[in-house]
Nucleic acid binder design. Structure first.
Lengths: 194, 194, 194, 194
DNA sequence: CTCTAATCGAGACGGTACGTCGCGTCTTACG
DNA sequence: CGTAAGACGCGACGTACCGTCTCGATTAGAG
């Protein structure tokens, strides 16, 4: 069985063959390169394989789906982002958290542009919601006017939407301006108690 | 040329052949019927044609794309929704506008579930934004902290997101609850002046 | 359903689309051309499609299998051969029948070389046996020392074998010599009564 | 180089490692077991390796081809058969030779069924012809009406054909009946002088 | 009774053909 | 003579098997 260790928690990764590491990296890089050129939906698995210099069938030895590959890329990036912002948010400084988030995205704007554009956004958002849902809920009252799971879905969707809009208008707005918008439009309203 | 009248504004539609009217209605009904069964992406043009009782090639005589057909359906529905809500919103009663919107969606929940689920949501949102962008901007100051086009994109996206979340949890929340959420989370924050 | 009329009796062919006639002819010609170059097993469906100038998927619109295409070619050829030989054989002149058979094969030796060489021979023999089995059994006693179906299988197999051997040694033996061998080795022994 | 001793004459085999002997036996047994279940062509090398309990690559350490493995099995069996029949045939008792042959085949009918059915028959016949061709030609006149190499090809092919037909109709005809058929149909005609 | 090299299992890899599907175009036959 | 049916070229899909290759981990047989 080829996919034995594909879907487990990466931290327990039981010594992957060096070739597999190389191949996966090649696949990831190829997808990112292609995302700079065209939308996710317009990229075929054949193209990714060709670009990565691996065989077509090899793709399926590592990922079940085009989206699965994207997820692999996205998961790490999203985890980094969340790890960066949440501590600040827990410190109750929502504006600083928003600022940190925007700065991070701006510093890797090429990547995030690719990830939030085209058909990739859906997968990204899904992974985003998944990771956000895993965050311990803090001291929010359970029966708030805003259901907890909607808070997550809404927060992620609105954030992603605003970032996508920002990234599509490169160099028009500063990280600071977007952070303010994000804070006033998304974070503060969704944290307001009854 | 076959597609003479496909892409004009429907209001100026220069006398549609009765057969074309019938065929288009059949295609629309077929798509809606299929949307009750499976996601938009999983529906093929061949299926729509077969279900509608028309020939496969006939589809292309009326619509360039599967999305174009969906748009045809969505446009009318969205226009109705906007026509319903905006007057109230201009009357500055945002809560009442939200309530009207939610009631309308609830009254046609099957249709809206189909439209906001699966791959259809993207097309829907696009048409929504298009129509929302056509609304005269009112007396909003141009250099607000919130750029006008982002206000539209954000308002539509957030609304669509919340509605989709609501519709996917049928019978858990009342129209009134969602209206409150919508008002507090989306409308009020985005209308707050500096 | 595409294959509606693929497997019926060709004589009742219910008006085939002119394009289908053209496409099938192209496929048949392509296979024959390729059989001149390499063995049947070494020819891929992709090759046949490419050579014939048709699309790959189009092949399957006409034939379920590579062998089915070969059968289409073989059936007509075999029918002609049987139609030629059997009357003479029923006239009890086995040597003349053998001679007619060998002459016919020699006159189309390129085609028959292709058909009896490589993996094609198996399909050929199958169709040959099928058609030979349909011939009314004549006045042979049912409980002969030689079972009727074995007579058919053996007669065809031995004949095919000898012809294949002959065709692979082009220009070494005359049609007349092979006819004598065929008569003495196959026909006469299998017609000998108890 | 791995294949050092694969293709030499086995009699000179320079001390095979005990492991190699075991592995080859396992491969042979696996193929035979699979031949009881499905046709030779439908058996993949991967299947043979899995069934034999050896690694996939190990197959290629011992045999270049699926057919090569089959040949290995067939060669011994055919040699035994020939060793049994030829002495009797040289004693000019063709009927007894035929009888011996049929009895031997019947006593190992499972094996021979497998060998003469499916795609294996071609390889079998090839090896059969090869070994039969090595037999010293006896006192047959060179310029007989029947060329010597055709006599071999024909004799083997016809015999194989009749045996295959027999084995596919298990328990319908006795070894004695088939021996008579074989004698009258194949051996006697091909030994008749001018 | 070691030690060293052959042999093994496992399976990743680049290829390539398979048969299916949906696309959008273009040809046909029929009413 | 226009229109509905559907054949067509195209190309991606995911699967299977090919034969090659690189790994350790046994495990035999020579010393």
């Amino acid at each position: 069985m080829d996919h034995k260790f594909l879907h487990g928690v990466p931290s327990t990764a039981p010594v992957l063959d060096a070739r597999m590491v190389r191949t996966r990296a090649a696949l990831r890089d190829a997808l990112l390169a292609l995302l700079d050129e065209k939308s996710f939906d317009d990229i075929s698995i054949r193209e990714i394989a060709a670009r990565s210099g691996t065989g077509y069938a090899t793709f399926f030895r590592h990922y079940e789906t085009k989206s699965a590959l994207l997820n692999d890329i996205a998961a790490a990036e999203i985890a980094a982002l969340i790890g960066l912002c949440m501590p600040i948010l827990w410190g109750a400084d929502s504006r600083a958290a928003a600022r940190t988030l925007c700065d991070y995205v701006e510093s890797r704007s090429m990547l995030w542009s690719a990830l939030l554009t085209g058909g990739a956004a859906g997968t990204m958002r899904g992974e985003f919601i998944r990771q956000a849902g895993l965050i311990p809920p803090g001291d929010v009252k359970p029966d708030s006017w805003l259901p907890a799971d909607l808070r997550v879905v809404y927060g992620v969707s609105a954030t992603v939407e605003i970032l996508a809009w920002w990234l599509s208008r490169r160099d028009t707005y500063s990280s600071e301006q977007i952070a303010e918008i994000l804070d006033r439009l998304v974070i503060t309203p969704s944290l307001t108690p009854d």
